[in-house]
Amino acid sequence: MGAGVLVGFTLGLVGGGGSILAVPLMVYLVGVDNPHVAIGTSALAVAVNAATNLANHARRGNVKWACAGVFALAGVAGAFLGSSLGKAFDGQKLLMLFALLMIVVGVLMLKKRDAQGDPDVHLSRQNAPRLLLGGGLAGALSGFFGIGGGFLIVPGLVAATRMPMLYAVGSSLLAVTAFGLTTALNYARSGLVDWALAAVFIGGGLFGGLFGARLATHLSRRRGTLNAVFAALIFVTALYMLVKSALAIHGAR
């Protein structure tokens, strides 16, 4: 339950981070032996928690619905394709690639931590192609790594539209929900979802998400703080996953 609270809190705080934390928590803390089961189960739990956090951010006016909708629709097909490929890939190597991708995204977010963004951004002919391309790519990576994809979606939305970080966090949760459900259903077809464990994570996440959304609104008032928190969370978790995955692969030899 505590792990679920932490996942829900990070989803509400930075839009991403739910699956970033859910997968390693299930593998290294809860003790789920099969990485694919951890991926499928976390995708379901994060999707449900993301939907709840989306409602929290929507009440605060932090969601750009049109931009988020285009991004999410473009990513669903990519998520299905990516998750089909991910199921056929070695679990430990999948976790290691996941960690390396997290580090790259963290560096990119730090570079843009001082950007203010355009709070009046809306869907247009100029940003629609970028949203479609970014959504498709984020969806494919999200499905391949079995994640909700928030840590990919947030920078994708910022790059495509120049929306402020707080709006990207809130808007990303629509796509996190869509990508997560697509991935979870694909994994469930192969029996790779632990429904009881998912329920525990969902219960804890509902509680943690309320506090995460409040803190995100507070931190957004301080220039660059929310971006820095987002990147720091990614770096710490990625380094931990790299060490654990490397030891697991070495031990299997």
Results as ranks from 00 to 15, higher is better:
G150T: 02
G204M: 08
G117H: 00
V193D: 10
P155N: 14
K87T: 10
G170Y: 05
V70Q: 12
G91I: 10
D114R: 11
A88Q: 09
L173K: 10
A115I: 03
G203V: 06
K93V: 00
K111A: 14
G136F: 00
M165R: 01
A72M: 12
H122E: 14
H122C: 04
A72C: 11
T161F: 05
S171T: 10
P164W: 00
G134W: 00
A188H: 04
S84E: 04
L152Q: 02
H122D: 10
G91H: 03
L174S: 07
W65Q: 11
G82C: 04
I147R: 08
R189L: 14
L100H: 01
M96G: 04
F144A: 01
Q126W: 14
G148I: 10
L192K: 14
L141W: 03
F201R: 04
Y187Q: 15
L101I: 09
A99M: 03
G146M: 12
A168P: 13
A138K: 13
V70Y: 13
V70R: 12
F89I: 05
L97C: 11
A175D: 02
A77W: 00
L133P: 05
A72R: 07
R113H: 09
M96L: 15
A115T: 02
Q126Y: 12
G205T: 08
D118C: 08
G170C: 09
N186E: 06
G143V: 12
L185P: 02
A199C: 12
C67W: 03
L174M: 15
T183C: 12
G146H: 11
K112G: 15
T177E: 03
A58I: 12
V76I: 10
Y167G: 07
G146W: 02
A175C: 06
D90A: 07
A188L: 08
Q126R: 09
T182F: 11
A74C: 02
A72P: 15
P164E: 00
N62I: 15
A128R: 00
A128S: 14
A115E: 15
N186G: 05
A168R: 07
G191F: 01
L132S: 09
G156P: 15
L192A: 08
I202A: 12
L157G: 03
A159M: 09
G148K: 05
L85Q: 13
G149T: 00
G146Y: 05
L81N: 01
S142I: 01
G136C: 03
A88G: 02
L133F: 10
F89R: 05
L185Q: 00
A140N: 11
L123Q: 02
I153W: 04
F89L: 06
L133N: 07
L108H: 05
P155C: 15
G78H: 05
K93R: 09
P164Q: 00
M109T: 13
M163K: 03
K64S: 08
V154C: 03
T161I: 09
A68F: 13
F80A: 12
L73V: 11
A115S: 08
V70S: 13
L181P: 01
I147V: 13
